[in-house]
């Protein structure tokens, strides 16, 4: 049985005349966690946004079936709603289909938040709480594909760990496909099925983390010696 979810062929993306992605091809199967790895400016976020059809591109992006997509961009954090008169409950009310209060509460519980957070201002949450709230906000629409762009920016190490463990447990339960951008190599080992690495020179690699992530490859991606501790 063909389990393919997404096929990308010869993808080219240029922004303001500068080539960001060149002749990129890869495949993603249902239920995978694909981690996109690369140095700053290698085009990780651009790739995610292109796959979401937010940017103009050349080449083929073929989704098998119409997917219900959830997206957590890198820049959406509590600072975006700071000082807005917007409670967490209001924030859920911005969804296209407003979920029932009971449902919101159960999703908040799922991501480890208390239900009394509903009446708090979204902008007053801590970075970690806000990220969890966003995870619930995305999951409540029951997507089958989630795009997660550096979810732990600005969150302390412990907070980042729990966000990833949370995603991992939901992934196991719900059979989601996850596209993840991260700098954190430990996370890559622990949580991803496949890795797609990008670098500015247009070299790509694609495969299971253990097959492709060796010191030599990492040097190619990040351009410097990186020590790697393998996790099990």
């Amino acid at each position: 049985m063909n389990n393919a979810l997404l096929e990308v062929e010869n993808l080219n993306v240029a922004l303001d005349g500068e080539k960001i992605l060149e002749n990129l091809s890869f495949q993603v199967e249902k239920g995978e966690i694909l981690t996109v790895l690369g140095a700053n400016g290698a085009g990780k976020s651009v790739l995610l946004r292109t796959l979401l059809n937010l940017l103009p591109h050349e080449g083929n992006i073929f989704w098998h079936q119409k997917q219900k997509v959830g997206y957590l961009p890198q820049g959406l954090n509590q600072l975006r709603v700071k000082n807005l008169p917007l409670t967490v409950s209001d924030f859920f009310g911005l969804k296209n289909q407003v979920p029932a209060e009971e449902e919101i509460k159960s999703f908040l519980k799922l991501v480890g938040l208390e239900e009394d957070i509903l009446s708090k201002r979204a902008g007053s949450l801590s970075g970690g709480q806000f990220q969890r709230m966003l995870v619930a906000w995305v999951l409540i629409s029951r997507p089958n594909v989630i795009f997660f762009d550096e979810p732990t920016t600005g969150i302390d190490i412990g907070g980042g760990e729990t966000i990833y463990s949370l995603l991992h447990s939901i992934w196991e339960k719900e059979k989601l496909t996850i596209f993840l951008v991260t700098h954190d190599l430990n996370i890559v080992y622990k949580h991803s099925t496949n890795v797609l690495c990008l670098n500015r020179k247009g070299h790509y690699c694609f495969g299971a983390p253990k097959e492709i992530l060796n010191p030599e490859m990492l040097k190619q991606i990040f351009g410097a010696e990186i020590k790697l501790y393998e996790h099990h």
Binding site: R49, L54, G70, Y71, P73, L76
Partner: peptide, 13 residues
Amino acid sequence: MLMNIYEDVAVVE
């Protein structure tokens, strides 16, 4: 309001 907060998310929604 959602567009004001984050346009890309609004598009995906």
